[in-house]
């Protein structure tokens, strides 16, 4: 009886010790050091004329700010939602093109054609007077 009790206690303690390590381990392995959150970037409106775009890195994510001819400023992640390549802005076609598998997005980030199934992630953007503030 006492031996059985000891065995059960050993199992419980073993599982508890092992189990209590799992969560910290999962958090430790998925840490995202080096990606500061909550940072803001600001530009003068005049720096990006209508139809032009600027590549930026925001919170560790390659992104693009586009001054759309008919929709004003928008900030989008450049990370293609298919397999993570970076989309490029094609000014003449008013499209964002993925060089890897020919995914095509419009200037709102919505998928037009190709393998991506989700739109590009939009990054919050505000106009404050003459400034464009990202984040």
């Amino acid at each position: 009886m006492r031996r059985r009790f000891l065995k059960i206690m050993l199992a419980v303690l073993g599982f508890t010790a092992f189990g209590s390590l799992l969560y910290p381990l999962a958090r430790f392995l998925s840490a995202t050091r080096g990606e500061p959150k909550g940072k803001q970037l600001a530009f003068k409106k005049t720096e990006i004329p209508i139809g032009a775009a600027r590549d930026i890195v925001f919170n560790g994510t390659p992104a693009i700010i586009i001054n759309r001819p008919d929709g004003g400023f928008v900030a989008l992640s450049r990370v293609c939602t298919h397999l993570g390549c970076l989309v490029d802005y094609d000014k003449s076609k008013k499209r964002l093109l993925c060089p890897c598998h020919a995914g095509v997005y419009d200037l709102d980030g919505a998928v037009i054609s190709g393998l991506p199934t989700r739109p590009l992630r939009e990054i919050s953007l505000k106009i404050k007077g003459d400034d464009v503030v990202i984040g």
């Binding site: 999962a26 392995l29 998925s30 050091r33 560790g60 994510t61 298919h82 390549c85």
Partner: peptide
Amino acid sequence: TIATAIPSSFPYAGEFITEVLRSGGQ
């Protein structure tokens, strides 16, 4: 970049696996 993005299409655990492989989203 491409290879580590592949697991992200799994529901629930996919993003986690990609983050573990990359140590973050990017």
